[in-house]
């Protein structure tokens, strides 16, 4: 159905992209480690933003705390680096107060799913028009590599030296169950696919969540015996995921145990700010 649009998009991508338009170049170099995928995810995000055509003045990027949450500092939008786990709540306030603004939330798996879990759930439930990009690298990188809510069972972290015993969350399943109307997954390895996924999320009216599988070679990678950052990307992102469109075409053993990529859930439901506009009308004496 969306195939022709995809091809058109690919052609557009071959044109060199001017990232400077969206960056604050004087804030570089960034704090991310060599081999970290956060910069790759950001590039996909910026290309998707360009494709929406939305003016920078009307974009607000809000983050919590952690490595990924440093993203807003590098981009030339209205940017807010807030409190650990609370980005969704700050963003909800901004969006409700100014619905005409495009509000993007940048969060990590610890930020969104652990300390911010409650805010994440209720932001999805409200179906307020935010786009959340959750960088999932299964570790708390900023604090030196502790296990996170997405660390697989048995894996090593500085706080799970004997192997992690907590089962991981699936951010997409949770977002869907909580009521988000657009749920998707991408990886830092599949950069062009990620760009399209994020673009679709940005164009969706309602709460959109993109879980982006990303790697932390510095902590998670070293502790779990990955040979290199690229090896890690291949194992976790390339071989550890499968595009949802290919699931039916592949034998079950090639799908089992893998995370699904692409748009996993896309439905329409009344959006929060639109509904609140109706409340205002009602309160002012309309019907």
């Amino acid at each position: 159905m969306s195939e022709p649009a995809v091809k058109e998009k690919k052609q557009k991508l071959s044109v060199p992209f001017n990232y400077d338009k969206y960056m604050r170049p004087h804030k570089l170099p960034h704090i991310w480690c060599p081999g970290c995928g956060h910069g790759i995810v950001l590039k996909s995000l910026l290309r998707a933003v360009e494709a929406t055509g939305i003016d920078k003045d009307n974009i607000c990027m809000v983050s919590g705390i952690g490595c990924s949450s440093r993203t807003p500092g590098y981009v030339d939008f209205n940017t807010m680096h807030t409190l650990h786990g609370r980005a969704f709540s700050f963003a909800t306030g901004i969006k409700l107060a100014k619905p005409e603004m495009k509000v993007i939330v940048i969060s990590g798996d610890g930020d969104a799913l652990a300390i911010g879990g409650n805010h994440f759930i209720h932001t999805c439930r409200r179906n307020i028009d935010l786009t959340a990009i959750v960088y999932t690298n299964s570790t708390y990188g900023m604090t030196g590599g502790q296990y996170s809510p997405t660390t697989p069972i048995g894996d090593i972290a500085t706080t799970s030296r004997y192997g992690n015993i907590e089962p991981p969350f699936d951010a997409c399943e949770m977002a869907k169950a909580a009521g988000a109307t657009f749920v998707a997954r991408g990886t830092a390895y599949h950069t062009l696919e990620l760009e399209k996924t994020i673009l679709a999320a940005l164009q969706h009216k309602g709460m959109s969540v993109v879980d982006v599988i990303d790697a932390c070679p510095t902590y998670y990678g070293r502790m779990n015996k990955f040979k290199s950052a690229t090896h890690m990307m291949e194992v976790i992102e390339k071989d550890g995921t499968v595009n949802v469109k290919q699931v039916d075409k592949l034998p079950p053993e090639k799908v089992q145990g893998k995370l699904l990529r692409g748009i996993l859930h896309n439905v329409e439901r009344p959006e929060y700010c639109q509904q609140y506009a109706n409340i205002i009308e009602k309160a002012k004496g309309g019907k």
Partner: peptide, 18 residues
């Protein structure tokens, strides 16, 4: 009405930023 007190003050700060 937010999901908790922490979210409430965060949303109020967000509102003020606009």
């Amino acid at each position: 009405q937010m999901e908790d007190e922490i979210a409430s003050i965060a949303a109020a700060i967000g509102g003020s930023m606009t």
